[in-house]
Each structure stands twice: as structure tokens, then as C-alpha cells.
Computed example of a mutant assay.
Amino acid sequence: MERIELDEAMLQGQAEIWRYLYSFADSMALKSAVELRIADIIHSNGGPATLSQIASCINDSFTSPNITALARIMRLLVRKKIFTIHPPSDGGDPLYDLTHSSRWLLYDSEQTLVPMVLMENHPWQMAPWHYFSQCVREGGIAFKKAHGCETWDLASRNPDFNKLFNDGLACTSKFITSAILSGYKQGFNSIGSLVDVGGGTGGLISEIVKVYPHIKGVNFDLPHVVSTAPAYNGVSHIGGDMFHAIPNTDAIIMKWILHDWTDEECIKILRNCKKAIPRENGKVIIVEIILKEDGSGVFDDIGFVMDLVMFAHTNGKERTEAEWKKILEGGGFSHYKIINIPALVSIIEAYPDAQ
């Protein structure tokens, strides 16, 4: 009996390794569905669609879509519950429909993860993952080993990568911004001016100012980033370097910025934040993942995956509350509180220490 149980456990272990070994197939199938706009085709159909209907909308003037290949991709995505399938009432071809998951794959939706799917699965972003073991053996940054430069350098010299990167970040900004505005309603009331440090193309600060028009908004990022930012009412774009100086303001917000950097670099950024805000009533609003090693929340597993994304693409990391506390104290912000919002991230509201 013991031998049978051992064999079953070993068999289960083997199956687990097979599953992890080929887990990239899930993301590649997902990417192909996005590139083919399958979710949009079903959505535009006004209801469930057959494979033939989906294929007929995959426009290519030179070739006809391979329905067999499409069926194989959809079979996996149905099993993963990205799409659903059910037989029609008249006994015809099976019908494919959207799920709550595939609704995040609609191109023109306000709540879409399409640019992130395309960015994270692009060869530029996948290449650094192959250097993890080398980084363990000899140190260094995976992205630099793969491309000969760091993420920000490649973005500054390669407009295509810069657009891919900015589009990916901008799409997440939309729904995380919505979560911030719903979960931090009282936090912006007393702010006269707000600088979004590392604000990209200005999506977050523009939405905050739209809801709180009394706030003077500043979108602060590297010059090559703000040069592509659109104009927004109540928002000015300023190019600069957060490691050198940050514009003076009542408060600072940083969304998914500090996780890109080492503890020492984060402390330097926070010290520059402290110089830019008033000693009394000044604050820094940090929007980041807080790792919970025993967490069972809907996003808790994703936090640990995101930590390896940081390992692949930057020199930063995701942090536990204890790790956040350490860098906040190093940057001159011993007092803070955590505000949970309906998102992958939380808000850390930090207040400067008295001089």
C-alpha cells in the first residue's frame, strides 16, 4: 500500500513538472489570441461565434486563416477558461464565447490588458528570463545581459521598444487609477499640488486632476518619456531625473516606480521626495505590491510572479511590508499607513520625519 501511494505521489510530481515545463504555452496561446483579436471578433459578433465565423474575421488579403490551427489554440484557451464553448441548440457547429477573463483581452475596452500581453510576451522582454541562472552564478542584471543595456537605456534609444513599454504601463494605469480613485477618496482632498514621479505619459495624474480639479498636477518623468505625452487640462509635463531632483509640491505620488530599483536607489529617491514636499502636511503616496508570504488573496500569488518580472527587467524587486518599512525609514519616512484598494497593488501613505 505504501509503495502504491509513493508511486502515485511520484506520478503527481512528474505531472506537475510537465505542467510547469510547458507553462509558457499558456502565455503564447494567449498572445496569439490577442494578436488575432479573437475576443474582439466574438464581442463584435454580438454573441457566441463559431470557429468559421471567427476565422472569417481574421483578415489577411494574401492568405486564408488555418481553421485547424485556430481550433487547437482555442481548445487550450477553453480548457484554461479564457474562452468558453457550448453546443448550439440546432445541433450545428460549437459556439465560442467570452468569459470574465477574455473580456480583459478587448482592444478598445477601458479595462484591457492587451498592451501588457503584447509587451511581456515580446522577444525583447522574454530574452532576459533565459539569464536567471547566470545572474545567480555571477550577479548582474538579466535585461542587461540579454540586451547589453538596461531597460531605460533601450527605451531612450529605441522608439519601438519605448512605445511598447509605455503602452503596456499605460493600460494598467487605467484600471489601477480607477481603484486608487475609489479606494483613496479622502486622500486627495487637502492636496493643492501633486507631482506624479515616474508618471509616464500622464494617465494617472490626468485622471486624478479630472476628479479633483483643485489640484495642480505635474507629470514628471525622463525627457524622452514626457516628450510623447499628450496634453491634459490642469497637468504640466516636466522632464527630469528623480535621482537628481524632484519639483517642489504639496504631495508626491509614485505608482509602480520603487519596485524597479534597489533598496539603496529607493532610499535616494525617497530622500529627494522628502526635499520636495513640506515638513508639515507633506506626504508621499506610494502605489505598490506588498508581498504576503502566507497570503491567500486573489492577487497574492501574482505578487511573487511580479517579483521575478522585476528580476528579469529591472534591478528592483517586490517587497514585504517589513522591507518597505526599512526603505521608508532610510528615506526619512518613519511614519506610514497602508490602505488596501481593489487591485493588485496597495497604497502606502508615508509622512516625512521632522528635521
Rank of each mutant, 00 (worst) to 15 (best):
G234V: 02
S64L: 14
D300G: 09
N219Y: 09
E16Y: 14
A142M: 11
K216D: 11
E150W: 07
C171S: 15
D60T: 00
P247K: 11
D300K: 09
Y212S: 04
N272F: 01
A322C: 08
R79V: 12
I191G: 01
G331V: 00
G92D: 03
F132T: 13
A71C: 05
I253E: 09
E8P: 06
W124P: 01
G13D: 06
D160N: 13
A245R: 14
Y96G: 07
N189P: 06
Q125R: 14
T172W: 12
M126K: 08
I267D: 02
N121F: 03
K275T: 06
G303L: 06
A231W: 09
E318P: 05
N315H: 12
T262G: 01
V287S: 07
H244E: 14
G234H: 04
Q134T: 10
P223S: 10
A251L: 11
M116T: 13
C266F: 02
P223G: 04
E207V: 04
H335E: 12
L270R: 01
T249L: 10
T68C: 04
A71T: 05
G140A: 04
G203N: 11
V226N: 03
I176T: 10
T68G: 09
V309H: 13
H122I: 07
N162Y: 07
K185W: 06
L291Q: 10
I302Y: 12
I215K: 06
C135I: 12
I176C: 12
V117K: 09
A55K: 00
